[in-house]
């Protein structure tokens, strides 16, 4: 689906362009498309991520945020 602009009424009653749905048709296909951990490319990336994003267990500076 390409750009799919619709006219919508704004707060002032004017019709303005608003981008609608741009979804790919159908259901997800392809193996491993929900995979994310591969975005961490090497050991340094992984360890950094563990110490920050997974700080609840592996953080060096406490748990919060």
């Amino acid at each position: 689906m390409s750009d799919n602009f619709e006219k919508k009424e704004n707060y002032a009653g004017e019709h303005v362009d608003v981008l609608g749905a741009t979804y790919e048709e159908g259901k997800p296909t392809g193996k491993g498309i929900g995979r994310w951990a591969h975005k961490l490319e090497d050991k340094d990336d992984i360890l950094y991520y563990l110490r920050t994003a997974e700080r609840y267990w592996y953080g060096q500076e406490g748990e919060k945020s």
Binding site: A21, T22, Y23, E25, G26, K27, P28, G30, I33, K39
Partner: peptide, 16 residues
């Protein structure tokens, strides 16, 4: 890096 973090487009049905 951009390629590696770029996701698939969102699907119409039962999207992830």
């Amino acid at each position: 890096k951009c390629r590696s973090i770029m996701p698939e487009p969102v699907r119409e049905e039962v999207h992830l």
